[in-house]
Amino acid sequence: MADVALDPQNSNSKELFGQGMRAYVLQDYDTAVRAFSKASELLAAEHGSDTHDSLGDVYLYYGKSLLELSRKESGPLGEGVLKNVEEESETEDIEESDGEESKGKEEVNGDNKTEEAKPPEESSSDDKPANPEEPSSTEKKEGGESEEELTDLQVAWEVLELAKRIFVSRGADGKKNLAETLIVLGEISLESGNFSSAIEDIVEGLEIQKTLFGCDSRTIAETFYKLGGAYSTNAQIDEAIESFCASYEYLTNKLKSLEKENKEADAEEIEELKDLIPEVQEKISDMKNLKIEVAKKVASAVDEAEPKTNGAAEASSSKQANDISHLVKRKRKDDDAQENPPKRPST
């Protein structure tokens, strides 16, 4: 897909928002982030508030774009990972080459090998900044430029919290976007490893969606699927199965509705659902198999622990029952006493 061209001189917030939306649809998340970021800055400056109603949708898609950008860069096949792998490979080659060169110098110079292997000399005091009180670049980043140190997920969380406040203030008119914002916040928590918070936000958004959409909503089906993923990641297998089953139910209801209406315009969506439903069924099957495996492992662990205890007890009991040496010795001693009574001392 072709990237969306973004004019850095553009100061029209509406145009920037439109460009950001196009970039988001085309999955050009980097451009989308830059467009939404600038649009939000312009709108906040224009209205003198970062929680003005006009910023709600901008923040929502700004946060969604940041989330997708973070996933793209940190995923198994993300560009960032590939770049890091290449850089690490180059670094290893350089280090290996330097090591061989250093080793060669040590062998040639003999007694001087220590001097040759020394790292470059540190800069003297003359190379230090003239003003010792001036903070270093690291200290500057920790202070005035702390925003640059925030990750995409952290920025996404902050702007979505602002969007949440705006949509709450809209009342009933903001429920749909509020639900979506909560679900995206849940996805961010999931990416950050905060599973309980992710489940809480997704459930809250789902409850709002249930009041807005019918029993054949693909939106709710998608949310249930995300919730199932959050539960499974948090090792709540039963809850995950329940959520995936609910997703399957909503999708099948949607398929039945479309087939009943029998409109040509719905043909593509019908085929899409027919491909999607088996995937959800497979997910349910995987979760059920996982539950069985976990149960087997637990039972196996219990079985392995019990024989050791019982076996030890039986062995001890058997030893006690079979060991009659003390009785034999005592009997022999008594028999000897009867056959050879002690002689009386002679008078």
Rank of each mutant, 00 (worst) to 15 (best):
Q338C: 03
S123H: 09
P8Y: 06
M287E: 08
D126E: 14
I188L: 08
H47E: 08
D50T: 06
Q154E: 15
T138M: 02
E200A: 10
V280H: 03
S54D: 15
T181G: 08
K308F: 03
K141A: 13
K103T: 12
G193S: 05
K226P: 00
A240E: 04
V328R: 14
A130K: 11
K72L: 12
M287P: 01
G311K: 07
I220Y: 03
E139C: 05
G214L: 11
N109C: 13
Q320M: 09
K72I: 01
I166G: 05
P76K: 15
E293Q: 10
E239F: 09
L212C: 06
S217R: 07
D127M: 07
A240T: 06
I284V: 14
R218E: 14
K128C: 06
S346R: 02
E242I: 02
L16Q: 05
E314P: 00
D275V: 04
I202T: 10
K210I: 03
N12E: 11
E259Q: 13
E88N: 12
E134N: 12
V184L: 00
S325K: 11
L212Y: 06
G193N: 02
N234F: 01
A198M: 06
R22T: 14
Q320F: 07
A5W: 14
E259C: 05
D303M: 13
Q19P: 00
E261I: 11
D334S: 14
Q281F: 02
E122Q: 12
K105I: 04
F17Y: 11
E87Y: 02
S89C: 01
G48V: 08
S217F: 01
E73W: 02
R330S: 13
D152I: 01
A267E: 09
G18F: 01
N234R: 01
S247N: 02
V302I: 10
E161M: 15
S49A: 06
E147N: 12
A235P: 00
V58H: 06
K333L: 13
D53T: 13
K308L: 13
V184W: 06
E101N: 03
Y231P: 08
S123Y: 11
E100M: 13
G143Q: 09
K260I: 09
P119N: 12
V108T: 13
E339H: 09
P135N: 07
K141G: 08
L273P: 02
T223W: 05
L60F: 03
L16P: 04
M287K: 12
E90P: 00
L178A: 07
T31D: 03
A299W: 03
G311V: 04
E149V: 10
E272Y: 12
S102Y: 00
L255T: 05
F213Q: 06
E41P: 00
D50A: 03
D173I: 00
E41F: 07
D30H: 07
S65Y: 02
N112G: 01
N177Q: 08
D126W: 04
G171K: 07
D28C: 10
D335F: 13
T181L: 11
L273N: 04
F167P: 03
E249F: 04
A221D: 03
V4Y: 04
L162K: 15
K141W: 09
E107K: 14
N194Q: 14
